[in-house]
Simulated assay, not measured.
Amino acid sequence: MKSIVQRVTEARVDIEGTTVGRCGPGVLILVCAMQGDTDQNAEALASRIARLRIFRDEAGRMNRSLLDTGGAALVVSQFTLAADTSRGNRPGFSDAAAPDVGARLYEHFTACLRDQGVTVETGQFGADMQVHLVNDGPVTIPIDR
């Protein structure tokens, strides 16, 4: 699975003008299931992100995790993370998992993140979404698992 983790002060996702998910201080996670990904990949990614030390400690250093801070996560499916731009000007997405597999792994990933103790809200798999965020720092971390 591929992901982009952005530390945020706030984030929300809208579908057709209606907010379907939001979080306060924490992370916005864009996530994509790739061909060959399994439940174990989703579990490992959730564990890694929950423990990723990207929040400031008392000394101002990035030394605290979502679990340490009680931060929340907004998880948004984004198959375009699978983009292959090695040929021509139009990206290819054939490395992304099939939609049924992608949806299942997306749901499994969010459940695993909740199981880690993180408050999670989501977008809607496969929907045309508008994502709004205030990137804190800015801190943006790509993670593949």
Rank of each mutant, 00 (worst) to 15 (best):
A98V: 01
D95N: 08
H108D: 06
Y106K: 06
A111F: 09
E107K: 11
V120S: 01
F109K: 08
F109R: 08
D128T: 14
F109M: 13
T110M: 06
A96V: 07
P142K: 11
L105I: 04
P138N: 08
A96K: 09
C112L: 09
D144C: 05
H132N: 12
P138S: 04
V134H: 08
Q124V: 15
A127P: 03
G137H: 10
H108W: 04
G123L: 02
D115I: 06
G117P: 11
G102D: 08
C112N: 07
G102W: 04
P142M: 09
E107R: 13
A98K: 12
G117M: 13
E121G: 11
R114M: 15
G137Y: 06
L113P: 14
Q116K: 14
S94V: 03
A96N: 10
Q116E: 15
D95K: 11
C112S: 13
F125I: 11
T122A: 07
V131M: 00
D128M: 13
S94D: 07
T119E: 13
F125N: 07
D144R: 05
V120E: 02
A97Q: 12
A103Y: 09
D100Q: 15
G137F: 08
F109Y: 15
N135V: 02
I143D: 08
F109H: 13
T119C: 11
A111L: 14
H132A: 07
I141R: 03
A127I: 00
V134A: 10
L133D: 00
G117Q: 10
A98H: 04
Q130L: 05
Q130D: 04
H132S: 12
